[in-house]
Simulated scan of single mutants.
Amino acid sequence: MTPPARAQAAIELLDQIVAAAEGGGAAADTLIGRYFATRRYAGSKDRRVVRELVYRAIRRCGERPASGRAALLAVAGDDAELGAAFDGSGHGPAPIAAQERGAEPGLAPAWLLDLLRASGLGQDELPALVDRAPLDLRVNRLRAEPDEIAAQLAGAEAIAALPDALRLPAGTDVAALAGLAEVQDAGSQAVTLASVAQPGQHVVDLCAGGGGKTLALAAMMGSQGAILACDTDRGRLQRLPPRAERAGVTIVETRLLNPGRELEALGEWRDGADCVLIDAPCSGTGTWRRNPEARWRLTPARLERLVATQAHLLAVAAELVRPGGTLVHVVCSLLDAEGRGQVQDFLSAHPGWTADRPKLGFGRPHGLGLRLTPAYDRTDGFFVARLKRPC
Rank of each mutant, 00 (worst) to 15 (best):
Thr254Cys: 11
Gly235Leu: 14
Glu264Trp: 15
Thr254Gly: 12
Asp274Ala: 10
Arg297Phe: 02
Ser223His: 13
Thr254Met: 05
Ala301Asn: 13
Val252Lys: 06
Pro281Gly: 05
Ala218Thr: 07
Arg270Leu: 13
Arg236Tyr: 02
Pro281Asn: 06
Gly286Ser: 08
Arg239Trp: 03
Gly272Val: 07
Thr232Pro: 00
Leu314Thr: 06
Arg239His: 12
Pro242His: 09
Asp231Asn: 02
Thr250Leu: 08
Arg261Cys: 10
Arg290Val: 00
Leu228Gln: 10
Leu306Val: 04
Glu253Val: 12
Gln224Lys: 15
Gly272Thr: 10
Leu313His: 01
His312Phe: 11
His312Leu: 12
Glu304His: 04
Ala308Gly: 13
Pro292Val: 00
Ile227Asn: 12
Thr232Lys: 07
Val252Cys: 07
Ala229Gln: 04
Asn258Pro: 14
Met221Ala: 11
Leu303Tyr: 12
Arg302Gln: 06
Arg290His: 03
Gln224His: 15
Arg234Cys: 09
Leu306Gly: 06
Arg297Asn: 02
Val252Pro: 11
Val249Lys: 07
Gln224Arg: 15
Leu256Ile: 04
Ser223Lys: 07
Cys282Tyr: 09
Gln238Val: 13
Ala308Pro: 06
Gly260Trp: 03
Asp271His: 10
Cys230Trp: 05
Arg270Thr: 09
Thr250Glu: 11
Pro323Asp: 09
Ala318Val: 10
Arg302Cys: 01
Ala318Leu: 05
Pro292Ala: 02
Asp231Gly: 02
Glu293Thr: 07
Trp288Gly: 05
Glu264Gln: 15
Trp296Tyr: 00
Arg295Gln: 05
Ala308Asn: 05
Ala226His: 15
Val316Asn: 03
Asp274Thr: 04
Asp274Trp: 04
Val276Asn: 01
Gly235Ile: 13
Leu306Lys: 05
Ala265Asp: 14
Thr232His: 04
Ala280Ile: 12
Leu257Asn: 00
Arg239Leu: 14
Arg302Phe: 00
Arg322Ile: 14
Ala216Gly: 11
Leu257Ile: 00
Trp269Asp: 04
Leu320Phe: 07
Ala273Asp: 11
Ala218His: 10
Ala301Arg: 13
Val307Trp: 02
Thr232Trp: 09
Thr287Asn: 02
His312Gln: 14
Ala315Cys: 04
Arg297Met: 02
Arg290Gln: 00
Val321Leu: 06
Pro241Cys: 08
Gly286Asn: 09
Ala294Gln: 12
Val307Leu: 11
Ala219Leu: 04
Asp271Asn: 14
Arg270Lys: 13
Met220Asn: 08
Ile278Pro: 01
Ile278Gln: 03
Glu319Ser: 14
Cys275Arg: 11
Glu319Ile: 11
Gln238Ala: 15
Asp279Asn: 11
Arg290Asn: 01
Gln310Trp: 03
Gly248Cys: 04
Gly284Val: 03
Ser283Leu: 08
Val252Gly: 11
Ala273Glu: 13
Cys230Asn: 01
Gly284Met: 05
Arg246Asn: 08
Ala317Phe: 01
Arg255Phe: 00
Arg295Val: 05
Thr232Val: 15
Ser223Ala: 15
Ala219Tyr: 06
Glu268Val: 15
Ala301Val: 12
Leu257Trp: 03
Ala280Trp: 04
Thr232Leu: 03
Asp279Glu: 10
Glu253Ser: 15
Ala219Glu: 14
Arg302Glu: 07
Ala317Val: 03
Pro323Ala: 08
Met220Glu: 13
Asp279Gln: 10
Leu298Val: 07
Pro242Gln: 09
Asp231Ala: 00
Gly235Val: 14
Val321Ile: 12
Ser283His: 06
Ala273His: 09
